[in-house]
Design a protein around this nucleic acid. Structure first.
Lengths: 231, 231
DNA sequence: TTGATTTAAGGTTAATAATGGTTAAAGACA
DNA sequence: TGTCTTTAACCATTATTAACCTTAAATCAA
């Protein structure tokens, strides 16, 4: 499922360029030219993230941001500010959005910031952590489900079947508790393994593989199971 | 008015468990065991959200999802996928639902995702204080619920599962009274522990951990419970 | 009513039990 | 053979129990 972007922009020419550029990267973009129409759009387009130009014809972008924030408290918002905006306005908006970008901006920067925000609010649904075509983003790591590869920067580590199974289960439930017995049943499917130390061995290995990014952690809930934390 | 959930599930045993669990949290649940009957149900039960098992006897859950989506474009849909589902099927469903959860899932996760999609705010009562993204500020301390970390200035203390559970209960009720038996039931869930000194041991530990800021205190109400005071 | 005494609840610390972590070696499989 | 999985042995951490100590409320005597 593509990440949905609501993009509020009155300069249609710039808007089209940004929209197409985002779409070419796999985002689903809904562009709105008039600030007054925005809240109506939410009726049939629930975005994963909002991009708001602060200079809008009918309403101030910051006000709009506050309205959105009130209705959807966890929805990430990025403000786009013209470089003529004064610092005072910037200061004033500290309450509102999650990020802002000065125009003119590069698409690289915009996309990086979108990814950043979507990865940070880790409890959003599904692919917020980034699953697409069997690719799961886990902090600075990339886990390729099909190839059983765990990539970090330039290095690629081939995972074994068991390693991959376990990592997949953890990743599927990231930021939630997975009971030990659930993992056991899913991987070994057998009660007789319940006193084996097998799972522990693989947990140790994954922790070792994931050591480079401390925002990725496997937390033990003794007597219960594990929690795979990904910021 | 209770949130209405339409739950399509052919495994009746699992279904009953999930249904009762949801009902115990205040949801109104209509369970349907046969995919072919689903659209008829909408005649007299208009849900706020749909839970669809993708492996159904008469129809594919994804098809069903598309039908529902067509008739009710904004109705949130969560797919429940069995572990045997292949990745291809997952890829195929990109058009459909708003979220998916792999079986087996925890009720916590299911409920969190339902809340998330419906934008229902706090599933935990009493978090009016400074909680955001699982971060609770307690005087000069910062308690990270997800990472089980208690931070004070530069130092970070990893909490164990029990320590974190207890601190969370106290923090959720900060500046109010929590009865001893409430804590006991929530953490140990068992009357037989009522004469154990277990809770006292953990209270001692938390007091020790929280010693640095005297505006944070755990006060004993003898014969009743505790009061977690945070200025 | 006041202060001493009793008593039950909780505090503290150490010991024990249970669970998980780590590492290496043995077994299984291709 | 070489790689992956499992087992085993040992270590570390966490949870629970136990023993003993402290405190606050309740009771009782004057």
């Amino acid at each position: 499922m593509a990440t949905k972007v609501l993009y509020v922009e009155d300069e249609l020419f710039l808007g089209k360029i940004v929209q197409e550029s985002l779409e070419s990267r796999g985002f689903e973009v809904q562009m709105v030219g008039d600030g007054a129409e925005v809240l109506a759009v939410f009726e049939n387009f629930m975005p994963d993230i909002c991009l708001l130009d602060v200079m809008l014809p009918n309403r101030n972008g910051y006000e709009l941001g506050e309205d959105i924030r009130q209705r959807f408290p966890t929805l990430p918002i990025i403000f786009l500010t013209a470089k003529t905006q004064t610092e005072d306005v910037l200061k004033g908006f500290t309450s509102g959005g999650n990020d802002y970008i000065r125009k003119p901006f590069s698409m690289e920067e915009l996309i990086a910031r979108i990814h950043n925000l979507l990865n940070l609010s880790g409890q959003n649904p599904g692919e917020t952590g980034g699953e697409q075509n069997g690719i799961i983003h886990l902090g600075k790591y990339v886990f390729d489900l099909r190839k059983y590869e765990l990539r970090f920067q330039a290095q690629v580590r081939k995972l074994s079947h068991r390693e991959a199974e376990l990592l997949k289960i953890l990743a599927d439930h990231r930021n939630f508790t997975v009971e030990r017995k659930v993992i056991m049943l899913q991987i070994w499917g057998d009660d007789s393994f319940f006193n084996s130390r097998n799972l522990d061995v693989y947990i140790t290995r994954l922790r070792d593989y994931l050591r480079e990014d401390e925002r990725v952690q496997i937390i033990t809930l003794k007597g219960v199971g594990y929690q795979f934390i990904v910021d």
